[in-house]
């Protein structure tokens, strides 16, 4: 069900762990939904992402997308990093199963949350145009916590590999 790339980035995660000298941290997701992603950034004076690490509680796709996005934004100015969206991440991984697209959304939101934290630390207030730090929209609100409004990925997804049947 997973592409070779996803398996590779899951088995051999890049940039996994904590970053002790991070100057921005973003945490998104909700343990209730089964996905939590924490992104650590070290942003220099030119606003370039000098270093990045992630910690993720979640499925193989969640770990692979975190891993991939850290690689994609490392060394980039933050303005450019913010332009990378979940579809770019999924594409770079050779695609994701439909049921796992929400995991790539989490990766994109993780970067946004960390950058928001950077501005917040710098200016003392939450920057405009950024969502609050821990809002998770991954499940489209199906977990009943009220998040998830205004997202693109909301069409019903049919999954033929329904593992609940293997009981």
């Amino acid at each position: 069900m997973y592409s070779d790339k996803v398996v590779d980035y899951f088995m051999n995660p890049r940039n996994a762990g904590k970053l002790d000298d991070a100057n921005a941290i973003g945490e998104v997701g909700n343990p209730k939904c089964g996905d939590v992603m924490k992104i650590y950034l070290k942003i220099n004076d030119q606003e370039i992402i000098e270093d990045i690490k992630f910690e993720t509680f979640g499925c193989a796709a969640a770990i692979a997308t975190s891993s991939m996005i850290t690689e994609m934004v490392k060394g980039k100015p933050i303005a450019e990093a913010l332009k990378i969206n979940n579809k770019d991440v999924a594409e770079a991984l050779g695609g994701l199963p439909p049921a796992k697209l929400h995991c790539s959304l989490l990766a994109q939101e993780g970067i946004e949350a960390a950058v928001a934290d950077y501005f917040k630390r710098k200016t003392g207030k939450h920057p405009e145009g950024f969502k609050a730090n821990t809002t998770c929209t991954a499940c489209g609100g199906s977990c009943g916590e009220g998040a998830g409004q205004g997202h693109e990925e909301e069409e019903e997804i049919f999954v033929s590999e329904d593992h609940r049947a293997a009981e």
Binding site: C33, G34, A61, C139, A166
Partner: peptide
């Protein structure tokens, strides 16, 4: 096997 959400596609 596992009964986690991520293996079921249901969250």
């Amino acid at each position: 096997s596992s009964g986690s959400a991520c293996t079921s596609g249901s969250l």
